[in-house]
Design a protein around this nucleic acid. Structure first.
Lengths: 160, 160
DNA sequence: TACTATGTTGATTTATTTAGTCAACAATAG
DNA sequence: CTATTGTTGACTAAATAAATCAACATAGTA
């Protein structure tokens, strides 16, 4: 029941993009540096977001990626689905037709409930909310202790 | 965000045990056959449940495994924790101390919420409820269509 | 006692997925 | 034309999942 780096890095990249976008595209290189994600890896990570039409990419000098929709219209449910695939914890919830007898197995009901619970959280959270939370945290952090480290990252070191 | 076979097979094995236990221990061989799980694999699977004191095992002839607690006292949250480890979707929710600055990363809040949502479902479900659900399903199935297949399994074929 | 049925443990194997790199290529701005 | 950026696909290394196998321990039974 773990999220892979795709979901985690990808979400952080999107949050970083939202925090730093001002009309002009944001180069992947900058996001990679700020979020401490290897550039070649990040390039692959964001591709599903491009084809999912969450972001647009611009090649060439001064290129980069930019949001295709306002952050309040981007739901984490879609982001995670694009980055990690279906949210359900087991296949039979995704493809009930492969179950020899759907509806005869009590455990699947529980897996279905878990799927709905996860989906509820992700569907109810937009990128805009993430942005606001992040700004709030950074503000309160500056208030309490000045001059500490630069950009912080949460899941970087070993959160497999 | 997938459950591994450990969690799935283990839960089914436990449900099978609860459905077939009548004082005497149930041999792993029987559970393996009914649930179509390879015996050597099942042997490894149930070990965490033994050390977690969910079940007791008896060696020798007429041996097998038996529940150590009444099914209504066995919560899926504990079963899954024993079989799959911590429920949180990322490490930093499990070990906040490894985060360079806990509380400064907005995405972790969401992962924490997801953890709570999953936990809520699992904590709120007991083995007894699974048993009742299963009996109910089998009863209604016999009512609607007689003489179909034997034991059904839901997640067996390909629910990775 | 000997034998059979069962669980226990640890080593080993195989396949899959994850995470990441590399290199060739395409497009755009200046 | 050149530097800068994204795009694509092949490739690799490491970790994890999903078993399998063999040697052993224990309990019942003839």
């Amino acid at each position: 029941m773990k999220l892979s780096t795709r979901g985690r890095y990808g979400t952080r990249a999107l949050l970083d993009l939202a925090l730093h976008s001002d009309e002009s595209p944001v180069p992947l290189k900058d996001i990679a540096r700020r979020q401490q994600i290897s550039l070649p890896y990040l390039e692959h990570l964001v591709m599903p977001l491009v084809s999912g039409e969450i972001i647009r990419s611009t090649r060439g000098a001064h290129g980069g990626i930019s949001l295709l929709k306002p952050p309040e219209k981007i739901r984490l449910s879609e982001v995670i689905r694009l980055l990690e695939g279906p949210i359900a914890p087991v296949e039979c919830v995704i493809h009930p037709d492969i179950c020899p007898r759907v509806g005869s197995c009590a455990t699947c009901d529980i897996w279905e409930e878990i799927k709905k619970a996860i989906y509820g959280v992700l569907e109810g959270t937009t990128l805009q909310e993430l942005v606001e939370r992040q700004r709030q945290k950074e503000a309160s952090r500056n208030g309490e202790a000045l001059g500490s480290e630069g950009t912080t990252r949460c899941d970087q070191p070993k959160d497999t």
